[in-house]
Nucleic acid binder design. Structure first.
Lengths: 98, 98
DNA sequence: AAAAACTACAACTAAATAGGAGTTTTTATT
DNA sequence: AATAAAAACTCCTATTTAGTTGTAGTTTTT
């Protein structure tokens, strides 16, 4: 019936991921991490002047979307950009933007 | 500050567009139009068994996102796929899907 | 026990959807 | 020319859904 199958779930997934990234706080986190190798949660929520729980929530979203990675060292968890994730993101934008 | 500028508006725009496409009724409309050259609004809302106003609304969304085009002939408005729009859409998905 | 981060929950906000009613545009009829 | 009918569009409202924030409580490590 359909020449080329359009997978609604795939589209929904990508749309959701892009929209998840497109949030003021999360864009700020990404920007900060482009200049610094890695940051722990305390540093991030202090710099952004938001609640700890809020920072944790946003960080988790970015990590689940494959934008960030984290490693635990002692009591702290350090977040950093996942290699190539930004390049992929920009490539995605270039392909999709008409 | 940011090595590569991330345009939040661009991301939001693409996310919104993809999400607009990812709707059951609109996917059905796209699928139907992949098999038929063009269809008028009455045919579409009858086939999908939805309200006329609803069909009009969904068609307008798809047109505004550059997926469909329309032409008026007499009392009817005929909708069809905008050339290359589906190819672009699928290319977009391939680039963004990880 | 204390520090750091995560998780869960509830309240609030914003966006999307569907339905009904009314409006515009075009054609047909008298 | 006036009116009616068909087709599609627009507007408004109610409902639903998704996302955000904040508080409180829990887990993990020192």
């Amino acid at each position: 019936m359909i020449k080329q199958e359009i997978d609604i779930r795939k589209i929904e997934d990508i749309a959701q991921r892009l929209r998840a990234i497109a949030h003021p706080v999360r864009i700020k986190i990404i920007s900060m991490l482009e200049n610094t190798d890695e940051m722990n949660v305390t540093t991030i929520f202090n710099k952004l002047e938001i609640e700890q729980a809020s920072a944790s929530h946003h960080l988790n979203i970015l990590k689940s979307k494959g934008i960030l990675q984290s490693r635990r060292q002692g009591k702290s968890t350090y977040y950093s950009l996942k290699p190539n994730s930004i390049a992929n993101l920009l490539g995605c934008i270039n392909t999709c933007a008409k």
